[in-house]
Design a protein around this nucleic acid. Sequence first.
RNA 1: GGGCGGUUAGCUCAGUUGGUAGAGCGCUUCGUUUACACCGAAGAUGUCGGGGGUUCAAAUCCCUCACCGCCCACCA
Length: 750
Amino acid sequence: MNPKFLKPYSPQDTEDNIYKRWEESGFFNPDICIEKGIAKKNAMPYSIALPPPNVTGTLHMGHAAMLAIQDILIRFNRMRGKKTLWLPGTDHAAIATQSKVEDLLYKREKKTRHDLGRALFLKRVEQFAEESRNTIKTQVKKMGSSVDWSREAFTLDGKRSLAVRTAFKQMYDEELIYRGARIVNWDPKMQTTVSDDEVERKEEKGIFYYLKYGPFTIGTARPETKFGDKYVVMHPDDKRYKQYKHGQNIELEWINGPITATIIKDDAVDMEFGTGVMTITPSHDILDFEIAERYDLDKEQIIDYFGKLLPIAGEFEGMHIKKARPLIVEKLKEKGLVKKIDENYTHNLAINSRGGGLIEPQIKEQWFVDVNKPFRVKSSDISGIKKGEKITLKKLLKNVVKSNQIEIIPPKFEKTYFHWIDDLRDWCISRQIWYGHRIPVWYCENLKIRNNKSEIRSECGYPIVSVENITSCPYCSGTIQQDPDTLDTWFSSGLWTFSTLGWPLETDDFKTYHPTNVLETGYDILFFWVARMILMSGFLLGDIPFKHIYLHGLVRDEKGQKMSKSIGNVIDPLDMIKKYGADATRLSLIIGTAPGNDLKLSEDKVRGYKYFANKVWNVARFVLSNIEDIDVNVKPKLREQDKKICKELNGLVVEITDYLENFKLYLAADKLYHYFWHTFADVIIEESKKILTEGDEEERRSVQWTLFYVFTTSLKLLHPFVPFVTEEIWSHLARGNHQKLLMVESWPSP
RNA sequence: GGGCGGUUAGCUCAGUUGGUAGAGCGCUUCGUUUACACCGAAGAUGUCGGGGGUUCAAAUCCCUCACCGCCCACCA
């Protein structure tokens, strides 16, 4: 027996070596498994695309949980002889990464991106992303993840760029992508739009002002936007304002002098709220914009893209809205236009959750994906949707889940998913930032650009959408200019399950491994990402991107608080691995947590599972030291008790396999933990001791063989959960048939 | 405002199709015997949030109330 076993198990001295051996074996790559006869050529494929971590920083416990869950599924299926592919990568996380680098640049050099210029700035971002990517790779390895590094992808590399442009072109040609002037979430700090899903609401106490607006009283929390308010809106059924007719003009005194206001009757107004009358600011409010659209009203811009007031504000022109507000209130008071002030008012501020500033709605020309426009299905492997049929993206999104082609685990999230689709509006995909996929559209400078969203024409003057870079106008050979904007990062992540497999090229990987089996991620990005993958895959491939969605919860601290740097309660996975080992860290993230539920993690919990790894180690010592004199490959005649033990073990194999097939990882891990510790170690081993010392030859053989059988079977069952310690022990069992790495041993069959 | 969850032992949570409550940690007592003190043995602890209903039988199904949490939303 190796003297290693005389000491307690040391993950620190073991894990890196084991990972190196796995990597060198090549078995993370399914092609090599086939080559070496581990998986049959015609075996069932099993694939997972690793949700690519953002290159903004380092991995946290949520990533660790994700890696643990996926690695368990992957190792389980690999051991079952499937062609198993786990494809890793990273996400360029456009806006988040750019924001981070801009902050660093300013902090260190007091420079802005404009000081460097587009090309130089992008170099800096790429450098940052590269460093971050290396850190992330190291962390992924530390967790024991059996990903196929030879296929590693990045959302912004060449192959993915081809996929993005192809996708854009196909959607554009189908008129699902259009350019239009719509109200968008504008971040004046980062000078870009952000999508609805990236806006975070934060409650804030404010002051609510009741203002005299001619004969009406209107309320507002933002008096600085009111300069251009010349429409006054009320509900058509509101009896209080019966005498006013839709379209009627009234003269009144307003902030900067007399104006003519127009009455609008619209049922978007809540009669119960305030006075039931409001004025609208179509340029800077989404609801107001929609009302203005309905009646084709003027939409005058009040605030510029930097948050400063425009000439319409008169004497306040050029002033930042934050500074101007109290002065404007002062003036309103002087003019006797303030009727009442309510200081107990809370409202929601809109903030760019990707490290940006306070959102100011603005009307801007942007690129959108139309989710309500019917398109003709080119091909379909989706049940209930036929080739040639006309459907909308919304309907497509709903159908695949409703028809159970995609199963969401836990199922409660299906409802959330459907509600989200119901409320879904067109997706703004253009961003005014530099880091990302440049929009593959060029404009010929010889002719004026048209923006009619319904018109796509192959002639000069219309946007030229091209997969390949072009240098001159294909119609008039004139000078062209590429759209300066970049795409929303989720546009490229939406293609992830198939862009990683080589699409749009008809690669073997794509044919073999798509659709993927499982998409495993946190429930917090169900909308951002999961839904968009379904959308992209549905439209571009006429297929689903994955069969199951497994959503894990958020990892919180032991009190249930979110881990955050500012609270200082962050548990770093690398710290835990260093102190207790990756196996312990993995178990602590699996046991006691059902899918979709948040997980409370404490260091004590991780420590507890380190003890388990050591228990496995000690059992190995006991078993190894007691079987030295037998040939484990020869099955002796078994005692009745030992037959019973084997039978029970077979029952366990069935149970664990069933749990794993049904994504009940926490039950599988928990069950194994208890079997190993409280049945195998506490009962079977304890009872064996008497026979081993006092039994006759036949009894001893039976017990020895049974111990070895139960132990090796347990190691196989445990391997997906605690791969390091089991592999290390396996390497010391290299007797008889046990020549291979445990990671490619066959899963036990009952 | 709309939606979705949760409420089970001191703490963290399990509890598969309804059959008289489970695990870990913690706690108490004892224990060094072919592995392991990062150990073993024995033990205590619960009107399964309240109320009502269906049923031979409810933590589990239905209704209702209370509290907690999360997500979504354009309340000026």
